[in-house]
């Protein structure tokens, strides 16, 4: 379990990083390394070079505003998790981050790295997807903004092109009278979830449900976003919404859970998360 030989560059700026990546086609960007280093050690990946961006201070940013939370490529999970400002603007971020692995991993791993790794069982891709967030990518040709729907292409596959680096992710703020919740079930604390769900519920002025969406992890090749507004109805029939999800999904079996159990569990968690999100929305509406 030792990595094969690889080249290594330690740029100090984004421009240097882009140049280094251009000079090493097939190179991988190293940020927190919480997924990449194990892949190297198990020789499941053998990139010709690692572009270590940890010295590029300009990427180590976390900005919050009315519009949302913008997380730079070097911001660690723990920093975002502990940011009161980020939690105030978009509470779902902290709720989901608490389920990401263990504190030691959250101290090192990065939010943007997790998105770029595009593991369908990871929490943050589902959060970005259900919130309709974006990823900003830089290349020597310039910058582009990629919507979450387009960003996640398949298991461990995202829309970043060769020579492109994800420099930040944007999580839109929670609108008024909107609540959220996150629920997942893992075999052990901190493991990848068997299934998980991020739920967002919006109420109207009359406190009736006007929108209900869920972002699911662990049950499809990419984060699955479902609009459950119609299924739940304006009164918020959460069992009906959960039944809709059960019927809609087609999860795989693996060594930890059968497809049947995963489907059942997804329904249970969806109902719980929607109920909690609706309660959160009501609380926020009354504040």
């Amino acid at each position: 379990m030792k990595p094969p030989p690889f080249g290594y560059a330690a740029p100090r700026t984004l421009d240097e990083a882009l140049a280094a990546l251009a000079a090493a086609p097939g190179g991988k960007v190293l940020a927190g390394g919480q997924s990449l280093i194990p892949l190297l050690s198990m020789r499941l990946a053998a990139p010709p070079a690692l572009i270590d961006i940890n010295r590029a201070a300009e990427l180590d940013t976390l900005r919050t505003g009315d519009g949302g939370v913008r997380v730079g490529a070097l911001a660690r999970h723990a920093r975002v998790e502990r940011s009161a400002e980020a939690a105030a603007v978009q509470p779902l971020l902290r709720r989901a981050l608490r389920h990401v692995a263990h504190p030691a991993i959250r101290n090192r791993g990065t939010v943007v790295g997790s998105l770029a790794h595009a593991d369908p069982a990871a929490e943050l891709p589902a959060v970005l997807a259900v919130l309709g967030g974006t990823v900003e990518a830089a290349s020597p040709e310039g910058r582009r903004t990629i919507p979450a729907d387009d960003f996640f292409r398949g298991p461990l596959e995202c829309a970043l092109g060769p020579g492109e680096i994800a420099v930040s992710a944007f999580f839109p703020a929670a609108p008024p009278r909107t609540g959220s919740a996150f629920a997942e079930s893992a075999r052990r604390h901190g493991d990848y979830a068997l299934t998980g769900v991020a739920a967002v519920v919006t109420l109207g002025e009359d406190l009736r449900v006007t929108a209900a969406r869920t972002g699911h992890l662990g049950i499809a090749a990419t984060p699955l976003v479902l609009d459950l507004t119609a299924a739940a109805g304006s009164a918020g029939d959460w069992p009906a919404a959960a039944a809709h999800v059960r019927a809609r999904i087609d999860p795989d079996a693996d060594i930890h859970a059968s497809a049947d159990y995963r489907r059942h569990l997804t329904g249970v968690l969806t109902e719980r998360a929607l109920r909690a999100a609706a309660a959160d929305a009501l609380r926020r509406a009354r504040d």
């Binding site: 198990m42 075999r187 052990r188 604390h189 901190g190 493991d191 990848y192 060594i255 930890h256």
Partner: peptide, 24 residues
């Protein structure tokens, strides 16, 4: 230990062999 029919051990890592953590 999850062996498949051909004798491959499918969970030969601490990610998939679920030794409990202190939290369990």
């Amino acid at each position: 230990m999850v062996y498949d029919a051909s004798g491959q051990l499918l969970n030969a890592s601490f990610m998939d062999f679920l030794m409990p953590y202190a939290t369990e």
